[in-house]
């Protein structure tokens, strides 16, 4: 009896949850395509592309903002990769004094919204002329993103099958060949996961960018903020979708890029 109820309830519950995730997306799409949303209509009035036109319009500055967002996110991710690769290898393979402490320090920043920490070294940023610059913002974005990259890569390194590296040496592969052909392919899923998280977090960042960028470095989140905070709902919706689209396309190309790399580095 109970189990039959269960069998019925689970699909209903899951469907409900999925709907709760999809309805907002649909609503955003409808909203962005309507000109006005009068009470008590469920859907906005006549279809119009005016919000999208506004968003795309050069005067709104959203395209440069999009570019800035991507530049920051991708650069930060690249730096993260370079920093996290050796660190993750160290954490995964060596037993050294203070390993736990190092890991804790590296992961701790994921717990605190970066703006709250950045305020503490804001002065140093000013002193080093890093405020109001993209490099400053990129540096600040390392704070919330690096932990995720370190975590993803550490898991990846820990699950590497080292017997395969040995095998490669036995077959005459030198260190770099072995890394390139045998180790790296095993790390790629971790690299993909870490990069995706790093890009997503950086793209979403708002307050840190505002504090360090001083309003001079305009990312998409900064440009859209006034519209989602009580501005024109239709434009806010268009911006939200533009953001989701940007994130989706970036993640998708990252995934394809990594997969392509993976298959192009096959032997033949």
């Amino acid at each position: 009896m109970v189990s039959r109820l269960f069998k019925l309830l689970i699909p209903v519950f899951l469907t409900g949850m999925v709907l709760l995730n999809i309805i907002p997306l649909l609503l955003l799409i409808f909203l962005s395509l309507g000109s006005s949303w009068m009470w008590p209509h469920l859907f906005p009035g006549p279809i119009s592309l005016s919000s999208w036109k506004y968003v795309i319009n050069p005067a709104a500055g959203s395209l440069p903002a999009l570019k800035t967002s991507l530049q920051i996110a991708l650069t930060a991710t690249l730096i993260n990769l370079i920093l996290a690769m050796p660190a993750a290898k160290s954490l995964a393979h060596y037993h050294f004094k203070g390993r736990k402490a190092c890991e804790l320090i590296l992961l701790l920043p994921a717990l605190i919204p970066p703006w709250a920490v950045i305020t503490g070294i804001h002065k140093t940023f000013i002193y080093l002329n890093l405020t109001d610059t993209m490099s400053g913002v990129i540096l600040a974005h390392l704070l919330p993103t690096l932990p995720y990259m370190v975590r993803a890569l550490t898991i990846s390194f820990a699950s590497i099958d080292y017997s395969l590296e040995e095998q490669a040496y036995l077959l005459g592969g030198n260190k770099s060949q072995t890394f390139f052909y045998i180790t790296l392919p095993q790390l790629l899923p971790g690299i993909a996961a870490g990069s995706i998280l790093s890009v997503l977090i950086s793209l979403s960042e708002y307050l840190t960018t505002l504090i360090i960028g001083g309003g001079q470095v305009l990312t998409l989140t900064l440009v859209m903020f006034p519209f989602v905070n009580g501005g024109n709902p239709s434009i806010g919706a268009a911006y939200s979708l533009l953001f989701a689209l940007m994130a989706l396309i970036t993640l998708f190309s990252l995934d394809t890029f990594i997969n392509r790399y993976y298959s192009e580095n096959k032997l033949y």
Binding site: P86, S90, L91, Y94
Partner: peptide, 8 residues
């Protein structure tokens, strides 16, 4: 291991 972890 310390050198590897140092930059991060």
């Amino acid at each position: 291991p310390y050198i590897l972890i140092l930059p991060a």
